[in-house]
Design a protein around this nucleic acid. Sequence first.
RNA 1: GGGCGGAUAGCUCAGCUGGGAGAGCGCAGCCCUUACAAGGCUGAUGUCACAGGUUCGAUCCCUGUUCCGCCCACCA
Length: 903
Amino acid sequence: MSDRELSKTYEPGVVEDAWYGEWEQKRYFHAPSDAGGRAYSIVIPPPNVTGSLHMGHALNATLQDILVRWRRMSGDSALWLPGTDHAGIATQNVVERQLAAEKVDRHALGRETFIGKVWEWKKEYGGRIIGQLKKLGASCDWERERFTMDEGLSQAVREVFVRLYEEGLIYRGERLINWCPRCHTALSDIEVEHEDEKGKLYHIAYPLSDDGNIRLTVATTRPETMLGDTAVAVHPLDPRYKDLIGRTVALPLTSRRIPIVGDAVLVDLEFGTGAVKVTPAHDFNDYEAGLRQTPNLPRVRILDDKADILPDIPDVPAGVLKMLAGKPAKKARGIVVQLLQEQGFLVTTEDHGHAVGKCYRCKSVVEPYLSPQWFVSMQPLAAPAIEAVEKGRITFVPKGWENTYFDWLRNIKDWCISRQIWWGHRIPAWYCDDCGAITVSREDVGSCSSCKSAKVRQETDVLDTWFSSALWPFSTLGWPAKTRELASYYPTAVLVTGFDIIFFWVARMIMMGLHFMKEAPFRHVYIHALVRDAEGQKMSKSKGNVIDPLTMIEQYGADAFRLTLTAMAAQGRDIKLAPERIEGYRNFANKLWNASRFVFMNLDDEFTPNAGLLTGDSSLADRWILSRLQAAVTETHNAIADYRFNDAASSLYHFIWHEYCDWYLELSKPSLNQEKGSPARKAAQTALVTTLEATLRLLHPIMPFITEEIWQKIPQGVRGAGKGTAAASIMIAAYPQADESLRNAGAEQDMQMVMDVISAIRNIRGEMNIPPSSQIAAIIKVEDGELGRHLEKNAGYVRTLARLAELRIGQKEAKPQGAAAGVIKGAEVYVPLEGVLDLGQERDRLGRELERIEKDIALFAKKLGNRDFVERAPRAVVEKDTAKLEELKAKREKLEQNLKMLG
RNA sequence: GGGCGGAUAGCUCAGCUGGGAGAGCGCAGCCCUUACAAGGCUGAUGUCACAGGUUCGAUCCCUGUUCCGCCCACCA
């Protein structure tokens, strides 16, 4: 048994783990610190430590791996830098839930202990997604794996925070922010997801006169917040109300009187009653209106940080408070509505749909909440980020996403970066109990920078997770230190990610990269498809609607799974994945496997490749497949370079299955059947194995495992042929480059003729239901002698592939009685079917063929009869169409003759 | 309220810069032909959503319509 022998079917499971281990052990994934001017780098979008691999990750990682393997094989120092994100809120939630199961509250543990628990959790479960990426075959440089909370990155975070603070771009202030009462923290604007919900619009009467008879009716969806009203707004031009501006109304349920103000921005004449309650502490619009209209009035806050009603709202009588204090806002609504109704203030209610903001981590309804927070001034950072894309220093693929990017950055608001949780980068600011000054520092401080008092307390808030993510492209390379890695690999080549984090991550990385590195962090942003679930919903870590790609890998193999994703990665379209599709690509893997078996079976033990690929002994088929290979090389290379991954996949799929397997393997058989050592056999063996070898390298970035497994069985002398380097692994072998000297248009044309003849005979066989086992003869009548000689020379192919017992070729051949006929360019093909032929069936077949041709002729004739077309269309197009029409007409004539002969 | 994307074979989807409609699965027929039945060969199937327009010519460009999906937005 030769060591080149392969098992009958491809078994991915065994092969994959073995090769991955081998690659890793040999350090093939490792990129040198100094790239020597040939750097190609990609930083992975760090998955959450809490995450497990879902379809989005799988697609994302597959595409990056293709790029990195491709560049690595092409000779670059290719670095794919991996890592994970500490995912502040998400991770804290996971650990809290785990503790809750043990009936433990984090507050009972205390901050330090709790954080210790989270680190423990990370140590135990945080590596899961890394293992899954390995299963997929990701060729990340694991020696450089980073974590957003590790030592180096934490230092980068501090450096950035301090510098931005010193530059005045980070500030602290009391603002209305989005508050998640469940996660118990502030959120940034983009961390709030708006969902449409059915609600009610409550019309409430606010008494205008002391006797309560004259009333102003406001409409609101959130009646419970009325306790915090500080004004009622009407439109300044509203004839109904404009005279009331400046007067006051009594706020029902309270002892407060609030002013009526005119505000054209806040009030829409058409909506509701035209009068709006103003609650600055609990509504973003009202907050703005409050600043405009009543800057001196206190903003009445009625909710605490759990969104429960406060026990001490100004001007609210004890009786009312008793009912409401401590109640969650949602419950309070019912109580307030009931009170209003009982006291005759509720005028009416109507159904009303409106958008409700929800926490992107836990889906709780978010509460606008007035509190002191830390912010980043965005406009100074956004301007250069806009310019970088406008000027083309960064390009989005597909380009359409640039508009989304611009829209957001041009309307950007300051970024609330403080979070009231424990897991994350604690803000490096210290408050002085004595003088109240804030000290912001790279090092932990023990005394106030202003009054030197030792009574300083560090800020308890931590930073938004996305703050550290924004630094990822340079923090992972060692910044703020000036490392060789940073010099070699920054900026990175491309960022591969989904559109859902363009705001969260991509835009912020660009801003931070430009600000701190003075250079954009990447040249291209490739936005790939989003893998949605069955309902078209986006899959997300917190929604829990993820499908585990590992099942697919187990079932079909990582290579088949990767090829599926690649083939479906057409630009600008979402993916809905059907398992049958993976099955199809699994079959492809098996096809490749068996083709390789065939090749190895037909290599002699002492086989050595011919020195040159093309010798005088090469057959037409040999020249043809080598020529086609060059086309496949060019197409694949161009497709990957343009991020047209699906085109690369289909080009390879087509070449391997339909050209190499379906045609060339069959065509090589006549040569292989010659005796050992014969020149024709040697030439065919060379073409077979050379093409296979190059194809494996070409395919390797997409299907790394199977290509390595097969490649290792290829004779040493063939591996990396033309490069002179016999690599130990396909991973580090050279990526194929098109060899123009092997391009051969003549061979392609000649082969096409042979294939046409074979197809014509097969067609007759198929249509006439002639079993492949029954021996038939074929007669080919050619139009000119040269064609005849060409076919005669290649008759072996026709005999074998069409399974003929006899083949006659000549200009003078005629159609025998009772033969089926086929017409191709320049020749007629007859298959005598004495005794077998069903004349009626044959007539039908020819009739159908004729009908098709008539249709085509009509189309072309119409087109070419159009003078405008002939005069204005490019000459090549006209010539091509004219030739085609002539050919069709000739075919028609012959078909008609053949039909006539049938009677 | 703005913006984006989609509508192509029974299903899932390709069709790059306008020039005779494709793949996979499925379906029908014939085949276990010593690489592969996870296979081979052959075949059938499309008013390229609808209506206009530009053009010699439109699945492709423009306008509008309908139906899906998504993103953004402070309408109580």
